[in-house]
Write a protein that binds this DNA or RNA. Structure first.
Length: 766
DNA sequence: CGTTTTTGCCTTTTT
DNA sequence: GGCAAAAACG
């Protein structure tokens, strides 16, 4: 069976606002094989719909089938469907699956993408309404920080006391909540740097405007501002998007929520799919409240629960369900499967991280020997750096592996440099880019010269590039610097002119050549240089797939990764739990389930109970990635910053329902410790034996003396609080003085043994 | 002005 | 133990 051909004219963005009358078919093929709930979710086309889709219940299938259904029923043209996802990965997958379902018609789905990429497209069309030009630059996190530093410096603030990072985080948070500087509440306005928060935010926005740039948060926020202030523009977009679909609704923040609500107000055909139990982006401003409140926000909404799991076997599903049940404030779902019970979740304890890596590699090899493919196995970690121990082991044993989400292509120095050149060509006022490359390669335009440019730019309120073009006509610079700068400005002018008729890939090559950038790496004798040249070539190759240089710049800013063709090789996958959302593997390893690591101490400290619950959802996401085998592990000792720290098993291990878990103690290691809690007693003081103290650690110990005492509270085994500076006694190390308290870990300078890191429970007050 | 050495901070997760 | 920024050096 095939779909009726659609009129290509309707695929265009500017297709008819009202689709042709519908001609329903009897039983379209794409509905085959859907369960009743899935089918209901597909067929409930009109009005607000919330699909609560548990892990592995066919969420993406529902979304893609729904799109096929809307098109097949002639409810809308492809260009009238807005489908937003949270990640590029999800967008790509949906695009592919829609195409697989309905063929070429899917190419007309031009409004399928991430929140940010779609917002950027809308913003380009109305940039002038918020004081930007249509060719504005999208700044990434790195640019953002650098800009923030300049602002803090300009305000004469101490970078040590008020780090640019913190301000950036704060402003991001405001933007996630759709707060422009003028909308900040008085509490927020004073929350940074002695009440200067609001002022700094305003200064930052002002600066962005002169740079003709927008950061990630602005993409959404500016669109909201435009929608709120220009009814006609809003009306236009509302009319266009007859049907709106949202993936991972639980991850939306306030700004995204407002954005959706504005767009959906006319037709009210908003279908949100999500799972409150998989909300793991709270730290980035996601509001679980959005999904919990859906029915109030959109009265008359249809709510459909998908609870039949098609992914995992019984024990795994039960273990995950049991774990997540410990969270409060859930919408509640009861996942079930017709699959067999299968294997229990295995919980293994190891002596240290190294053994964990070694044993995991052995398990992987064993399974491979029994016919499993490596690509069927994944190791999911809490934090990116945890992959390292495994990588080292895999390299040593020659086990093929791939790390997803490691250092990214666009973050490499040479790529950022090249991009900076392109940015200045497209957008001369992009000071951040200009500053990055004025002296790369070295051309004798150092700090002194750049400072002069800054002075002039600030005095006249113009960009560095503009200032440079003026200053070369004066005598303010030394003749040499002036000539070099004039050359550079001249080059940019020429490249800009060439951009009009030269294909953009050729332009890119010209720029990299004539600027001397390629030559710089060719002359470089270091080991990385050839790789960098390869990367530059790859960058230019990647550009070929885009219509124009500006389209490419947008892509890089928004997608930030380059398609790699190594997907077909048989390798073990290593990635973070966050990165694994939406994926599944027959075999999943979940290492590092230890208190402090997972749940992450920082998350607990900063967000208390809600932080813990988010960590628990992360654990739930991890478990539910597994189809047949899930192996949780924890190590009693781990080396962090080159010192040994001991840890107790994660509370999440205790929360796994006993009936669905198989605890495997390491034979011989512990002389037969109790299998229910293999390492509850593993807190042994000799794990802190840091004989040769590294310089770094000595420095660390030395500089902690004058730390503030407040909120640095740890508790010993009797429940007493410690304070820095207090005298304590340790069984092995003797008497000493506390220099620093971090959670339950103490830095102590012992009278005899020197500086050590010790867990509070091992010392008593002297 | 550019290179080498020392220091600080670090490890949550990402559009 | 590693990386980026600051500081010290040539």
């Amino acid at each position: 069976m095939s779909i009726d051909p659609f009129d290509p004219a309707g695929w265009d963005d500017d297709g008819p606002a009202v689709p042709a009358p519908s001609a329903p078919a009897a039983q379209p093929f794409y509905l085959d094989g859907l369960n009743p709930e899935q089918r209901a979710a597909v067929e409930a086309t009109d009005g607000p719909v919330l699909v609560l889709a548990g892990a592995g219940t066919g969420k993406t299938r529902v979304l893609t089938t729904r799109i096929a259904h809307l098109l097949h029923q002639n409810k809308a043209w492809p260009g009238q469907i807005l489908a937003v996802t949270f990640t590029n990965k999800a967008a790509r997958e949906m695009q592919q699956r829609v195409a697989a379902l309905i063929g070429g018609v899917a190419e007309g789905m031009s409004w399928l993408g991430t929140f940010h990429s779609i917002a950027a497209r809308i913003l380009r069309r109305h940039a002038e309404l918020v004081g930007l030009q249509p060719n504005f630059t999208i700044l990434d996190a790195d640019d953002q920080i650098r800009l923030m530093k300049q602002i803090l410096a300009a305000e004469g603030m101490d970078e040590k006391r008020f780090p640019a990072r913190s301000l950036a985080t704060l402003i991001d948070r405001w933007k996630n909540r759709a707060l422009t500087p003028d909308r900040l509440g008085s509490e927020d306005a004073h929350s940074f740097a002695d009440g200067k928060g609001k002022q700094l935010y305003a200064a930052y926005q002002e600066r962005l405007k002169t740079l003709n740039a927008a950061d990630f948060g602005d993409l959404l926020l500016h669109v909201i501002t435009i929608f709120q202030n220009h009814a006609d523009v809003l009306e236009d977009w509302q009319r266009r998007f007859k049907y709106i679909l949202v993936d991972e609704y639980q991850d939306t923040n306030v700004a995204q929520y407002l954005w959706l609500r504005l767009l959906a107000r006319k037709w009210r055909n908003l279908c949100c799919v999500g799972d409150d139990d998989q909300s793991i982006y709270g730290w980035r401003g996601a509001e679980v409240g959005n999904i919990l409140r859906f029915e109030q926000d959109f009265p008359g909404a249809t709510v459909i629960r998908l609870e039949r799991n098609y992914r995992s076997t019984g024990h795994i599903l039960a273990a995950a369900s049991g774990l997540i049940a410990a969270n409060e404030g859930r919408l509640g779902k009861t996942l079930w499967t017709e699959d067999e019970m299968g294997e229990k979740v295995r919980v293994v304890g190891y002596w240290d991280g190294e053994e964990e890596a070694r044993a995991t590699a052995d398990l992987i090899e064993g399974m491979r020997g029994r016919g499993r493919r490596l690509s069927e196995m994944a190791i999911l970690v809490r934090a990116g750096h945890q992959t390292r121990a495994f990588e080292e082991r895999f390299v040593a044993t020659g086990l093929p592996y791939r790390v997803i989400g490691g250092p990214r292509f666009y973050e490499r120095q040479e790529i950022r440099d090249a991009m900076a050149y392109f940015r200045v060509v497209m957008q001369p006022d992009d000071d951040l880019a200009f500053e990055r490359i004025v002296n790369v390669p070295k051309r004798g335009l150092g700090d002194t010269t750049v400072q002069q440019l800054h002075v002039m730019a600030r005095a006249r309120g113009i960009s560095l590039h503009h200032a440079a073009s003026l200053i070369v006509e004066t005598d303010e610079l030394k003749p040499k610097a002036r000539a070099t700068l004039r050359d550079l400005i001249g080059n940019f002018a020429r490249w800009r002119a060439a951009a009009r008729d030269l294909p953009h890939t050729e332009l890119a090559e010209t720029v990299l050549d004539e600027s001397g950038y390629t030559a710089m790496w060719q002359a470089d004798k270091s080991a990385e240089a050839p790789g960098r040249l390869d990367n530059l070539k790859e960058l230019v190759d990647a550009m070929a797939g885009f219509e124009s240089l500006s389209a490419f710049l947008d892509h890089v800013a928004l997608v930030m990764e380059i398609e790699r063709g190594d997907a077909d090789q048989d390798m073990v996958t290593l990635m973070t739990l966050h990165g694994a959302k939406g994926l599944e593997f027959p075999v999943v390893f979940l290492p590092g389930w230890e208190e402090g690591l997972f749940p992450s101490q920082r998350s607990l400290d900063e967000n208390g109970l809600s932080g813990l619950e988010e960590e628990r959802r992360l654990a739930y996401v991890g478990l539910t990635r597994a189809r047949e085998t899930a192996i949780v592990s924890h190590a009693a000792n781990r080396r962090i910053y080159n010192q040994w720290q001991s840890a107790i098993p994660s509370r999440f291990i205790d929360e796994l329902p006993r009936d669905h878990v198989q605890i495997e103690a390491q034979p011989g290691l512990w002389g037969g410790s109790a299998p229910e809690k293999p390492f509850g007693t593993a807190l042994r003081e000799d794990t802190f034996g840091t004989r040769g103290l590294s310089p770094g650690f000595q420095r660390a110990a030395a500089r902690t003396i004058d730390l503030p005492v407040e909120r640095m509270v740890a508790t010993d085994n009797t429940g007493d609080d410690f304070v820095t500076g207090e005298r304590v006694f340790h069984q092995k190390f003797g008497h000493g003085r506390i220099t620093r308290i971090d959670g339950n870990k103490l830095d102590i300078t012992f009278d005899k043994a020197g500086a050590k890191k010790v867990i509070a429970a091992f010392v008593t007050k002297a």
